[in-house]
Design a protein around this nucleic acid. Structure first.
Length: 473
DNA sequence: TTTTGAGTTGTTCGA
DNA sequence: GTCGAACAACTCAAA
């Protein structure tokens, strides 16, 4: 117990005790930190967090709460409008300061600036700190003073900068004379009422320790082969750190420092993937309308097809194209989709089905445990061909060829589309072309046990090329 | 200001 | 089956 003045430490996407500048600042400046989390989903834009993301948040909050408790502190959890809820907590604790990490999403930038101004006007010390990125979006500019729009020069520039390293967690935290009341994490209603989350819970250790274990194992055994194996969806060749990074259970500085320390082949490639995360934040900050609007204005009136049945088949993994269906079923059952398959499935929705990329972004938002506004926007605008550094319009992924290249034995398809497991590798990515006797032997009856393809690949490819070409005028 | 080199992730076609 | 060319210019970033 301490009679020092209290500082609220406002937790958001930084659900950890290590590399936590606001927490350290409170201690260094002689305050007793009171960690707080405010659940106000309606204030997130353009949409409140999706189901899978909420499920992860539930675990992450419980975990960081336990971590803070072990250090002698607590996590105070409240729900309600952020401004009023924090005002209540400031009054209850007599806090003289509020510290937090910046979040660079459009909905928060102006709101948080207004809060800072209001708190300072009220005589509080209010300060925000660099958030969940290696380099803050507003501090990187081309020599012409404009934001970067191409990844390679962006990242080459960032690599020349002297970036701060991660800081360790405090070894102990003081407690205030009186703790304010806290709602149980369970009362936030983040877990589903019908248990669709068993697959997610089985696939992930959603704690900081789980992320840390994943990071260490990845660096030790996978990093040397990263460049080759990261594209194989049946393999465990990617870091799978994205949800831990999204919720700040691991900071990008911690991940970067550990990868640099490991070094060797693969490290630069892996760091460039962290770089894409940075680039996504950069783009969202400088182009705040991109979650809702194509960055390339020429796409404003693109003739997207409006076919709810096809979009639903895609969401449910019932398109009849095995690797696409496998990806969407992996997503539905585990809250994750391998990066290679995200591209294949995204290309199929946007190009073969000519569906507005925003429909894909909305589904990913609801179902991904790593759903992140900046990354989701960048990824979907890229595959739609309407974003920064986007895929050329004529790049239409062929799911059969992609399957043959990256899932040659069909192991990935078999895992998530078990009704095709009896098919030999030769046909598993194109069952509609398999001879009748092969299908019969595998127990596959197209249209009954597994759908016929909802579109012909060749025809829909030509249609997409035509639509994209026409857009160019 | 003008110029120049370059740009995540692909497919198809024809020799 | 393997390989190179074509696909389409356009924009970006830096010299």
């Amino acid at each position: 117990m301490s009679d020092k003045p209290v500082a609220l430490v406002w937790f958001r996407r930084d659900l950890r005790a290590s590399d936590h500048a606001p927490l350290l600042a409170a201690l260094e400046r002689g305050f007793v930190p009171v960690p707080v989390f405010v659940w106000a989903p309606d204030e997130e834009a353009p949409r409140a967090p999706g189901g899978a993301s909420r499920r992860w948040l539930h675990a992450a909050l419980q975990d960081v709460s336990a971590t803070l408790t072990a250090l002698g502190s607590r996590l105070i959890v409240r729900q309600g409008p952020t401004r009023e809820t924090l005002a209540t907590l400031i009054a209850e604790t007599g806090a003289k300061a509020v510290y937090w990490h910046r979040v660079y999403e459009p909905a928060f930038m102006s709101r948080d600036a207004a809060l800072k101004e209001a708190w300072r006007a009220a005589g509080l010390e209010a300060e925000s700190f660099a958030g969940d990125c290696l380099i803050e979006p507003q501090s990187v500019k081309t020599k012409a003073g404009t934001p970067f729009k191409v990844f390679t020069p962006f990242w080459n520039h960032v690599l020349t900068l002297d970036l701060p390293a991660a800081k360790p967690a405090p070894t102990a935290l003081p407690a205030p004379a009186v703790w304010p009341g806290s709602d149980p994490v369970a009362s936030l209603g983040l877990c589903p009422s019908i248990p669709w989350d068993t697959g997610i819970a089985a696939a992930w250790d959603m704690t900081r320790a789980g992320g840390d274990k994943r990071l260490r194992g990845f660096l030790k055994t996978t990093l040397p082969h990263y460049a080759d194996r990261r594209d194989l969806p049946w393999d465990d060749g990617t870091s799978r750190l994205s949800p831990y990074l999204h919720f700040g259970q691991l900071s990008p500085r911690e991940v970067r420092d550990a990868a640099l320390k490991t070094g060797g082949p693969g490290a630069a490639k892996f760091l460039s993937e962290i770089g894409w995360r940075e680039f996504g934040r950069h783009l969202l900050y400088h182009f705040p309308k991109t979650p809702a609007e194509p960055m390339d204005a020429g796409f404003a009136n693109f003739p997207w097809a409006d076919n709810p049945a096809l979009a639903e088949a895609w969401r449910r993994g019932r398109t009849g194209v095995p690797i696409v269906d496998a990806g969407l079923r992996e997503l539905w059952s585990t809250g994750f989709m391998h990066n290679r398959v995200r591209m294949i499935a995204g290309s199929f929705l946007v190009k073969n089905l000519l569906t507005d990329w925003r429909a894909g972004a909305a589904w990913f938002w609801d179902t991904l445990v790593d759903a992140d506004l900046a990354q989701n926007t960048l990824g979907w605008q890229w595959i739609g061909g309407c974003g920064a550094d986007a895929a050329p319009y004529f790049r239409v992924f062929n799911p059969v060829l992609q399957g043959g290249k990256f899932d040659a034995d069909g192991d990935y398809v078999k895992r998530y589309v078990p009704e095709l497991a009896g098919l030999p590798a030769k046909w598993i990515h194109r069952p509609w072309e398999a001879p009748e006797e092969v299908l019969a032997r595998a127990g596959v009856s197209l249209g009954e046990t597994y759908p016929e393809p909802v579109v012909g690949l060749a025809l829909s490819r030509v249609r997409a090329l035509d639509a994209y070409q026409r857009r160019r005028g």
